[in-house]
Amino acid sequence: MKKLSTYLPAINPKATKKEVEKAFEEYRMYLVTLPGDFLPKITPSYSQLPPTFTNQFHSSTEDLALERVEFERVRNKVIKRIHAAVNSLKPEERFIIIKCFMQQDIGYDPDIYLELGIGKTRYYEIKGEAMLRLAFNLHIEVYKKKNEVKSA
């Protein structure tokens, strides 16, 4: 009788943590920025090229409006995705993640674990579990390669 191979891939915790941090960098960028190049030009521009008469007329204002709509769509999608993932966490995990990554003034780990009233070791355990849970919820977890698992 042949034994079935049930290979479960192992998570690469450092790479996974970096991916979660990148997701929060993107989240914060979308919260606080709206690029200035999305504003229409108010100065006239002149060209020595003769006008073309096609059905493809777009002014710079129309083009920028379309870019802005697309930017807003992507922005809202990213923000909703992050909020849904964070809301699925346990209360202590959610508190830590919000304090660490989602506020305008990012919290420092010692301040957060003192505020929670827990020890440093327990704090980092909870934070690590939260980061892993977020990675799975956001589908950004990083797995070790087969040869990394054997050598580790």
Rank of each mutant, 00 (worst) to 15 (best):
K90C: 01
F136I: 08
E62C: 00
I140F: 02
L134V: 08
E125K: 10
L64N: 09
K90E: 03
L114H: 12
S60Q: 08
F95V: 12
P35C: 13
T54H: 00
I106P: 08
E62F: 07
S60C: 01
K77T: 12
L114C: 08
T43G: 08
V86R: 06
R94L: 08
R94G: 06
L66F: 05
I126P: 01
L39E: 09
R133L: 00
I82M: 13
F71A: 12
G128V: 03
S47G: 09
P44C: 01
T33A: 08
F53G: 00
S60P: 02
K80M: 07
Y124M: 12
C100N: 13
K77G: 09
K80E: 11
G107P: 02
R122V: 02
R81E: 11
R73N: 15
I42Y: 06
F101L: 09
I97G: 09
D105M: 01
G119L: 11
R81P: 00
A65I: 00
S45D: 06
E92G: 07
E67V: 06
Q104M: 09
C100L: 15
K99M: 11
E115F: 04
K90T: 05
V74E: 10
L114W: 13
E70A: 04
V86P: 03
T52V: 14
K77E: 13
V74T: 11
L49D: 15
V86H: 02
V142I: 12
L89R: 00
G119I: 09
G128L: 09
M102R: 03
T61G: 03
F57D: 02
I118W: 09
Y123F: 14
Y124T: 06
P50I: 06
Y46W: 14
T121F: 11
I112C: 03
G107V: 03
E129Q: 14
L64I: 02
F53K: 04
L34D: 14
L138S: 04
D111W: 11
R73D: 15
E125L: 14
Y124Q: 05
V78T: 13
R73Q: 15
E92H: 11
D63V: 01
G36Y: 08
E125Y: 04
K120Q: 10
D37Y: 15
Y123T: 12
R73E: 14
T43A: 14
